[in-house]
Design a protein around this nucleic acid. Structure first.
Lengths: 223, 223
DNA sequence: GCGGATTCTGGACGACTGTCAAGATTTTGA
DNA sequence: TCAAAATCTTGACAGTCGTCCAGAATCCGC
């Protein structure tokens, strides 16, 4: 009868070690199931888009029936919000491995451009979901806070790469954090639409324009 | 009984002047009603977003009942597609007046930045609809062709401004047509989200970053 | 002003939606 | 092992959706 959201156990008299471990296990289990359902939701959303995704469809892409969604999530907005947050986790881990390795500025720039093109092709459905949800945030303020937070995360991610590049070249970065992100995001979004539309040059064009934007944002030092 | 789409009149024996005028009048009248309904649809869509807009809601924002929509449009996709096309017409006329007047590069750059900020604030709902529909095109290929065409139109519009600016300063433009558009679009989209989220600095930040991007794309000549 | 074509209304349809709750099933703790 | 708690299934609910259609209302040439 109790919903999973509020993990309240009546007998909280003796809070010994065992009980605490139990509770953590319980919470972890609930959280794990939530993640499982959210992943099914993300898969469905990235395939159909926000406007055409129903709870029953999500449930069919999971191992459970549609009723269980209301056991782990208050309502649809709660589920989608959780999905948006989860998306961030998947997203950040994806990008950060790009920066870690490179030592030369050329290697970093090339690795960055390569990485963007690679994820453009490999994760196109996930990326279009992001742009779809961000568009929803223009209308529904339920998602807005989370979307803005993810945007900030991506912003910092781009900034880490660009400022690292500037550090390696010894030049300053001409644009601010958010402006830099906005421009790269614009390039990526354009490439995504073209890629999904089947335009052949999309990937190559993205690669070239990313390389060019890097050089534009941190000017080449003549040496 | 006949639907308005296929304007077929049985008696086409004597195609005289009067008949021809008649037909034109008929077509114009149907087209006018289509535009009227499409405008109601655009108003509704820009208020609610694609996912939450129903045909009945659109009809309520017009002077007609919901049945008439299927008299002038085959189905929902047909209506929305028509709306997307109509959006372009509204859109282009809006921007082109920005360029026409300016004579000095400074005037043009300032007018451009001012214009973008002005439309960001005044037409925020229309702009968020555009980004919403463009996101839909990532999923539904019904809209894709029209969306891509509108994107090209906007691309050329931006290019006209930037290349005119370059012409006035005597410097070349460093980036291509589509890359230039993508970057400005990224800036604008970021500003739109922040503006709708109520962040105060959004407009000022857009203005500053647009000015900066202009100078970045066509380098200042020292003279 | 009449008669046919055009335009519009409003209701009905089947399908689908989010939400909920009663009960079956499984897990858990003593 | 057994009862209670947690978890899951299933069916039902009140709406809303896009679509269609019979007929009312309007327009227009004669």
């Amino acid at each position: 009868m109790a919903t999973a959201g509020k993990v309240d156990r009546p007998q909280v008299d003796r809070v010994d070690r065992v009980d605490r471990v139990d509770r953590v296990d319980r919470v972890d289990k609930v959280e794990e199931r939530r993640r499982e359902l959210a992943d099914a939701a993300l898969q469905t959303l990235s395939a159909l888009g926000y406007a055409r995704t129903s709870l029953r469809e999500i449930a069919q892409n999971s191992a459970f029936s549609h009723g269980v969604l209301h056991y782990y999530f208050r309502d649809k907005v709660d589920l989608i919000t959780y999905c948006v947050r989860r998306y961030k986790a998947v997203c950040v881990q994806r990008y950060d491995q790009i920066v870690a390795t490179a030592r030369t500025p050329e290697g970093l720039a090339q690795g960055f451009a390569d990485g963007l093109v690679a994820t453009l092709v490999a994760d196109a459905h996930m990326h279009r979901l992001w742009y779809d949800l961000r568009s929803q945030a223009l209308f529904e303020d339920s998602f807005r806070a989370d979307v803005l937070e993810i945007d900030s995360t991506l912003e910092r991610m781009i900034w880490r790469i660009v400022s690292r590049y500037a550090e390696l070249t010894g030049s300053p970065v001409l644009t601010g954090e958010s402006m830099t992100y906005a421009m790269f995001d614009g390039l990526f979004q354009q490439a995504l639409l073209r890629h999904l539309a089947g335009q052949e040059g999309a990937e190559v064009h993205l690669h070239a324009s990313v390389r060019r934007l890097i050089d534009q944002v941190v000017p080449a030092t003549s040496r």
